[in-house]
């Protein structure tokens, strides 16, 4: 998760290599917690939309010869159901089950639109493993292009010094 967070933090800052790395990670190790930043990148940086389609196509095409593609896709839903019941699940879904998504998805979309990627990642995930909370650190990273950030998001929410 540390490497995902590293790519995410720099991607949010606008680093092209990190954006590419993050998109590759989203395709290779997809987790619901990665969705808000993925959506934000594809929304705010349209130039990355087709490259992401290419990355996904490449990952799927290279998964076919392994014979595991079907099992992998099936594991997406199985994982969610299983991990909601995980003893370490910190999400409200631990108490209300998948019903949390009725609140979590709209909340995550709203937070993403407001530029609150860290909180959006927490909200939209059907389950929240303890080490995933690292993604909250994205709240402390300011996008390089301030126009891409939500209007009300001020420097007051950012800690520094920032490099790059």
């Amino acid at each position: 998760m540390m490497f995902v967070f590293l790519a995410a933090a720099w991607a949010l800052r606008g680093n092209a290599i990190a954006v590419a790395a993050y998109l590759v990670l989203c395709a290779l190790i997809p987790r619901p917690i990665m969705l808000p930043l993925l959506a934000w990148i594809l929304w705010q940086r349209p130039a990355w939309r087709w490259p992401f389609v290419g990355i996904v196509a490449l990952v799927v095409a290279s998964a076919v010869p392994t014979g595991y593609l079907g099992d992998w896709v099936a594991s997406f839903t199985a994982s969610g159901v299983k991990d909601i019941a995980n003893d370490f699940n910190l999400s409200p879904s631990r108490f209300v089950g998948p019903w949390w998504l009725l609140v979590g998805i709209p909340l995550g979309v709203w937070l993403t639109l407001r530029g609150r990627i860290g909180w959006a990642s927490m909200a939209i995930s059907p389950y929240l493993l303890p080490y995933w909370v690292q993604m909250l650190g994205l709240e402390l990273v300011r996008p390089r292009d301030e126009r891409a950030a939500a209007p009300y998001r001020s420097a007051a929410t950012t800690i520094g010094p920032e490099r790059g």
């Binding site: 540390m2 490497f3 967070f5 933090a9 080490y131 650190g137 520094g160 920032e162």
Partner: peptide, 19 residues
Amino acid sequence: VALALLPSRKLALLLLSPT
């Protein structure tokens, strides 16, 4: 190494324990 490469040193410090 990943921690050291984060864009903010304070953020890296904050994540030191989990790392």
